[in-house]
Simulated scan of single mutants.
Amino acid sequence: MRSLVFAAILAVAAPVSAGASACRDAETQAAMNACVGEAFAEADAALNRDYGRLRARLKEDASAERKLVAAQRAWIAFRDAECAFSASSVEGGSAHGMVVAECRTHLTRQRVKELGYYLSCREGDLSCPAPLR
């Protein structure tokens, strides 16, 4: 029964990622929460790694580094607000934390891809603030 409820919540509340799919076998809400929490921790670690690498690349350009920091802070505020909205239909329920974590995982993985672009773009690309040299 819990697996069915979990699948229904994920289908409605947030895009299903590999992390959420792996969590479907969890038998309790606590186990599902822990599983999705681990997936978020992995995505967040990748985000922090790539963000740190990008900041390090911008150390000699203080203006660009400040803009990256401002963008990242704004992105975190957006992510958290978006996920609060996304999970609003289950607010107060036992699945709320899981739905928020799944949303954060999904958006964080997208941000990792965006930062990865900045880390791999080449000089000459006008939309590349931190080209490889």
Rank of each mutant, 00 (worst) to 15 (best):
A46Y: 02
Q29Y: 04
A41D: 13
A7D: 12
A45G: 08
G124D: 01
R49T: 09
D80S: 10
V12Y: 08
M32W: 07
S120F: 04
M98Q: 03
R66D: 11
R122G: 05
A14G: 07
A101V: 00
A26Q: 14
K67H: 06
L132E: 04
A34S: 10
S94K: 05
E60M: 08
N33C: 02
A30G: 12
R2I: 08
M1K: 15
D50G: 09
A30T: 14
A22K: 10
R109Y: 04
A39W: 00
S17K: 05
N48V: 08
S63A: 14
A31C: 12
A130S: 10
D44M: 01
F78G: 01
E65Y: 08
G19Y: 00
A62P: 15
V112S: 07
S127T: 14
E102V: 04
A8E: 12
K67T: 04
R24F: 15
A56G: 11
E82L: 05
S94E: 13
S120V: 10
A95G: 12
L107A: 03
L68N: 00
V112K: 06
R24M: 14
R73D: 12
V100D: 00
A18P: 02
Q29I: 02
R55L: 13
C23H: 10
W75K: 01
C128Q: 06
A26I: 03
A20K: 07
I76R: 08
A62Y: 03
A18R: 12
F78Y: 13
A34K: 03
G124S: 02
M1N: 11
K67P: 02
F40P: 03
S3P: 06
P15D: 08
L58K: 06
A74V: 05
C23W: 09
C103R: 00
E91N: 12
E27P: 03
G124K: 02
L107M: 11
A11H: 14
A13L: 09
S86M: 09
A34W: 02
